[in-house]
Design a protein around this nucleic acid. Structure first.
Length: 509
RNA sequence: CGCGGGGUGGAGCAGUCCGGUAGCUCGCAAGGCUCAUAACCUUGAGGUCCCGGGUUCAAAUCCCGGCCCCGCAACCA
């Protein structure tokens, strides 16, 4: 399977939004890897364009150096977050530039790129064209000046030629773009004329870009520059990689860039004679405390700050559990704390802690044997986890991360109930029943082992820690050994540890 | 104008595609337990599932109509 994120534009810091895309894709990548699927997970940075050039100039460094620096910073942040991308692409990478030019040449030779004169209202302040609709009272909304009518010659991509074919593709593949709402939106776009796409900028207006291979006076503009990364990265890995992964391509994007990915990109692929990606998966936006996230409001959530504050795993858990894929969600301090305390500290954390405490206290950590004679509640407990795993599988298919986690937690909940029902801490007082106590704890250790395996893609550090507490060697953690036959006689687990300290909230606040 | 999303116990949200006991977290009330992170377990109170019509044996869920709320300049997922 091939998983991609958008390329992040290097003039801004990573924030909750981009982190969300990363968390989703990282979780999926980990999930598929854990299930033995060959996985290629791609992210990177978009480094061309005017804004970058200006930022570089302002910083007093050549653009190449500037983007190198910012891109590295980006990558560093993702690494600190622990995202497991397989390749990090930069639009300034030589192989990418080369492939973009190859792509352009191919489409040009096929006759789908033409040269034309066009005129429009241009704002010199913004260095861009405006449509009548975008203007406020006939003026540029940013500079409040009247734009100038200028004529320019540029290259255009014959996008309209592929409109019908794309529409048909969407009709024949209802899940090409998902969730459905976004597919409908693209369908609506395709029922209107989509026109052709301007894909160049003359160098006198923009130099920091990829040169059009058949006209040195021009550079190409965002779409051909950036979108093509999804293919160029694979080509870089070799034709075999391309053939293996491209048919399994799953793009993940935010709803803001639906049109480029839902309309421009597939038509570009058609023009280049390449097969289309498999799915475009579109997610919603986050608001913060009910408000739009923006720099001016200063409410931007930084992933590293969250890591610092409650830990990366807890942050991942929150965004995956609290949002419904495809819909907008709200980031609230209060919900974050509530989720953390309820699900991570009280449920999972406390369960692990109580089980390991008993195991330690009663048997010095030595796992006790299981007799062939299981009680009905033992069977029920195991079945709950089997059920959770089945449900998890289904929900991952449909990107319902919140439900996948819900399923796992339903099983963990049950394990807490099982502990009270079977009451090993009461039975232990009767020396005759200690054998049974050992069995109960054995089952509960299986709970921890299985939980670790199930939450691995979502909460990788926690999973690792659970397995470490069980003294399971790193290589053996994923073994799908049947419930009850994993722990060999004499296996010793570690004493308890507080995984998620409760966050005390001030009742007077 | 148009497009999209939403309206579910006190709060925040799932569930709606594939109709059939309305679920989760927090909060509230009563009880239990003592292994555990003052955690855990049980029970309870609290719901016209926005409104109206339709389909159906059966509608939060499907269909039609209406009301209300949010987003759709830029940065940006």
């Amino acid at each position: 399977i091939y998983i991609t994120t958008p390329l992040y534009y290097v003039n801004a810091e990573p924030h909750l939004g981009s982190a969300y895309t990363m968390i989703i894709t990282d979780t999926l990548a980990r999930y598929y890897r854990a299930n033995g699927r060959e996985t290629f997970y791609l992210t990177g940075t978009d480094e061309h364009g005017d804004k970058i050039f200006q930022a570089a100039t302002a910083a007093g460094v050549p653009p190449k150096e500037f983007t190198g620096r910012v891109s590295a910073a980006f990558r560093d942040i993702w690494d600190q977050c622990g995202f497991t991308y397989d390749h990090f692409i930069r639009t300034t990478d030589a192989y990418h530039v080369r492939y973009v030019q190859e792509f352009l040449t191919k489409v040009y030779n096929a006759g789908d790129i033409y040269f034309d004169r066009y005129s429009g209202l241009y704002c010199f302040g913004c260095e861009r064209f405006y449509t009548e609709k975008e203007l406020v009272g006939g003026k540029c909304p940013d500079h409040l000046t009247e734009p100038t009518l200028i004529e320019e010659e540029n290259y255009f991509f014959r996008m309209s030629k592929y409109q019908d074919r794309l529409l048909r593709h969407l009709e024949e593949h209802p899940d090409f773009i998902r969730p459905e709402g976004f597919r409908n939106e693209v369908m609506a776009m395709l029922r209107e004329p989509i026109g052709d796409l301007c894909i160049s900028r003359p160098k006198n207006r923009l130099t920091w870009g990829i040169e059009i291979p058949f006209d040195q006076r021009y550079v190409t503009y965002v779409w051909f520059d950036a979108l093509i990364n999804y293919v160029s990265a694979l080509k870089y890995k070799g034709q075999a990689a391309f053939e293996k992964f491209w048919p399994e391509a799953q793009h993940f994007i935010g709803k803001d860039i639906l049109k480029p990915h839902g309309v421009f990109w597939p038509t570009m692929l058609m023009a280049a004679g390449l097969p289309l990606y498999k799915h475009l998966n579109v997610h919603g936006f986050w608001t913060v405390e009910g408000q739009k996230m923006s720099k001016s409001l200063g409410n931007v959530i930084s992933p590293l700050a969250m890591k610092e504050k409650i830990g990366m795993d807890a942050f991942r858990y929150f965004v995956l559990r609290e949002s419904v894929f495809g819909q907008d969600a709200d980031f609230r301090e209060e919900s974050l704390t509530a989720r953390y305390n309820a699900d991570l500290a009280n449920n999972l954390g406390n369960l692990v802690s109580r089980v390991l405490a008993m195991q330690d206290k009663y048997f010095s950590g030595i796992v006790q044997p299981l007799s062939g004679n299981w009680h009905s509640e033992d069977v029920e407990l195991r079945d709950k986890f089997h059920q959770a795993e089945e449900e998890l599988k289904q929900h991952m298919q449909s990107l319902q991360f919140h439900r996948a986690l819900e399923s796992v937690w339903a099983a963990i909940d049950h394990a807490n109930r099982y502990t009270v029902q079977t009451s090993p801490f009461v039975l232990f007082k009767d020396p005759a029943k200690r054998g049974r106590v050992g069995e109960i704890l054995h089952h509960l250790l299986e709970v921890i082992r299985t939980s670790g395996r199930l939450i691995g893609p979502f909460l990788p550090d926690t999973a690792k820690e659970l397995h470490a507490l069980l003294a399971i060697p790193a290589g053996a953690t994923n073994a799908q050994v049947p419930w009850g036959s994993f722990f060999v006689p004499g296996h010793k687990v570690l004493p308890p540890k507080v995984l998620f300290p409760r966050i005390e909230t001030d009742p007077n606040a």
